[in-house]
């Protein structure tokens, strides 16, 4: 591991001031915030992350979980994934979020990993994690050996000719389905970013994964109030029954009245270069009676534009079936 200076930030302003000197908040950042460390320490050992300064933000009081001002949920940036998954409000009102978190990683990792760290976790693409390989995300312009190489786990949506790395988060998929908003404090003050706008598509700059700039500190993530009477779930399909990243996953929620769908929302994981949500695909469900053919049409709309590679074409049908099954469950 490359050497670094360790700083314990006294408060958020101090962390932001230190982070402002990072050059970039994306790949190649010279300053990194340390929360749970489960991604950062791993990637520093691999030589993928080489910060000169590591700023500990675990003592800034950003670990709360409670009611947001609008009656929704306010989740502190350094709240542990375990605490969020088992929180009474989450279990009662956002069960898909609890299920998504508990479907990811192991208890040891969830005890350390945090809200913001989970959102910022990096792709598991093996070429990204191996500094001996080319990778446009890690070393811009060096090429993408995953295209034409080992890409069975990688994305079929939101890809570009430069990068097909999939976003590995389960938590973010459930948060996206719930219209999560990321709260950021930076050099220029505070701002709020809807989660769907927070993540960037790779395009021709796959080293840029989100909208964060040097000094930006995620302080919390908020969810609007859960819809009364909604049923939700998170369905994750993977190669092993536990402790494995998703091949495909779906976070779904629906409200029903007199046998018909009033509102339905869903997001897909494992298929996109970012957590994937297509509101137009959800919209065709409103007012309809639950029906497998209807759900399949919604899935087709959500997956329109998919560009599978040689090894991951199976994800297209697997994602359709995953979504149809999950929608069937919450509308039964």
């Amino acid at each position: 591991m490359q050497g670094f200076a360790f700083q314990r930030a006294a408060d958020a302003a101090a962390a932001i001031a230190l982070g402002a000197g990072a050059g970039t908040a994306q790949q190649g950042a010279r300053v990194r915030f340390l929360a749970g460390g489960t991604t950062l320490i791993d990637l520093m050992k691999l030589g993928v992350e080489t910060p000169e300064t590591v700023v500990d933000i675990n003592h800034l009081g950003l670990d709360g979980i409670g009611r947001a001002a609008d009656g929704g949920l306010a989740i502190g940036a350094t709240a542990r994934n375990s605490d969020l998954a088992h929180h009474p409000i989450v279990l009662a009102e956002y069960p898909a979020l609890s299920q998504a978190i508990l479907a990811g990683a192991s208890t040891q990792l969830r005890n350390a990993a945090t809200t913001a760290g989970n959102l910022l976790q990096r792709t598991r693409c093996m070429y990204f994690r191996d500094p001996a390989s080319a990778c446009n995300k890690r070393a811009p312009g060096s090429g993408c050996p995953a295209i034409g190489g080992a890409h069975r786990m990688l994305a079929i949506l939101g890809t570009s000719e430069h990068c097909i790395a999939s976003n590995p988060s389960d938590m973010a998929v459930a948060m996206l389905m719930h219209d999560a908003v990321v709260h950021v404090q930076g050099v220029g003050g505070a701002r709020q970013v809807p989660l769907d706008d927070f993540f960037l598509l790779p395009g021709d700059r796959p080293e840029r994964e989100n909208v964060l700039e040097p000094g930006d500190l995620i302080t919390e993530v908020t969810l609007p109030p859960a819809e009364p009477g909604a049923r939700s779930c998170y369905l994750k399909l993977r190669d092993r029954v536990s402790y494995e990243f998703a091949l495909v996953s779906a976070a779904v929620s629906a409200t029903m009245a007199e046998g018909r769908i009033v509102t339905a929302r869903f997001a897909l994981g494992g298929v996109g270069t970012k957590p994937w949500r297509i509101p137009a695909a959800e919209a065709i469900l409103a007012g309809q009676a639950p029906d497998a053919a209807l759900f399949r049409r919604a899935a087709d709309l959500a997956l329109a534009g998919a560009r599978p590679q040689r090894q991951n074409g199976f994800k297209l049908e697997l994602a359709r079936r995953c979504l149809v099954h999950a929608l069937t469950q919450v509308t039964a």
Partner: peptide
């Protein structure tokens, strides 16, 4: 009191 992976924890962060 909670289990974690010691390999992913910087000792200096556990004062």
């Amino acid at each position: 009191g909670r289990r974690v992976n010691a390999c992913l924890a910087l000792a200096v962060a556990h004062d």
